[in-house]
Simulated scan of single mutants.
Amino acid sequence: MKLIEFKNTNAQRIYTDYINRSKRVTKILSNEDQEDCLMELNSYIYEYIQNHQNEDETTALLNIIERLGSPEITLKEVVAAKKIDQAVRTFNLKHLIQALFLNLRNGLVYIVLFILTIMLASFPILIVLELLHPIETGLFIGKRKFFFGIANPNAGFYEVLGNTFIPVVILLGVAFYFLIIFLLKLVKNKKS
């Protein structure tokens, strides 16, 4: 992205500060997505300055920055949406967690997806616990209750999966992961 050069040093400082703040907000995105966001902002600023050349540079710059708003607020939804796109494209768990975290305030579906992702992240822990403590880890069933994970087998519960616990957890993990990605795609398509 080519930065705009201003004649007025104060305008240049204000512009540089705004672009640097925008860079910090978009830092979580891929380089390509960061560049897209910054180029979009830069083009708005450039066009406004070009259309208001009769005004003082600093005044014109402050006017467009005021219209655009604080990058910490303005870019929040853009970054969250681009992070969802990245998670859906890459199938990367790190990007998935970041996307869901950034979108928690955008509705109940994201909260549910975040909880599913936390459950997904607990599956490897359950596998390790099954290997270390096989008697206390599994799917336990008792009177009108069941526990998936860790339970005291002497408390009136019995474990039903036995040696198939680890394959079941792996299959559940894969199913949860693709369910989360599928739901994210649905939500993304519904917003579009």
Rank of each mutant, 00 (worst) to 15 (best):
V25E: 09
E130H: 13
V174A: 14
I180Q: 02
K94D: 09
L161P: 04
L104S: 07
L139A: 11
L131M: 14
N163W: 02
E47C: 02
Q86H: 10
I84A: 03
F165W: 06
L100V: 07
K82R: 14
L126H: 04
L183G: 01
I65H: 04
F101D: 14
L102Q: 03
F182L: 11
N154I: 01
K2W: 00
K2G: 06
E159I: 06
K188E: 12
F140S: 05
P124K: 08
G138V: 02
L93F: 03
I150M: 04
L104I: 12
E66P: 00
T58E: 15
Y177N: 09
L38H: 07
Q34V: 02
I97C: 01
F182T: 13
G107R: 12
L75A: 03
H95T: 10
G142Q: 04
D85H: 07
D36M: 06
D36R: 12
L116D: 08
D33T: 00
L172E: 09
K83G: 00
R21K: 13
K188Q: 14
F91A: 12
I181C: 11
G149K: 02
G138A: 11
F147Q: 02
E5D: 10
Y44V: 04
Y158S: 11
L161C: 05
V168Q: 03
I28D: 02
I49G: 05
K190V: 01
L179F: 07
K143C: 00
L132M: 15
I64G: 08
T74G: 00
K82G: 01
R21S: 08
I127N: 08
E66I: 00
D17Q: 14
Y44N: 14
S22W: 10
A80H: 07
Y18K: 09
N63I: 04
M39S: 13
E136H: 05
L161W: 06
R21M: 01
A11R: 15
K82W: 02
L100A: 05
E159S: 13
E35G: 00
I14H: 12
D17N: 13
A99Y: 01
T58D: 06
L104E: 08
I14V: 15
D85M: 04
P134E: 09
Y158A: 01
N8I: 12
I125L: 10
T90H: 12
I150H: 06
L161T: 09
K191E: 10
L116C: 11
R105W: 08
L132Q: 15
K2C: 00
E130R: 15
L93Q: 10
T117Y: 01
L183C: 10
K188Y: 07
N163A: 08
K185L: 13
N103V: 02
L41P: 02
V174N: 02
L29Q: 11
V174G: 07
L171W: 10
A80W: 03
L184V: 06
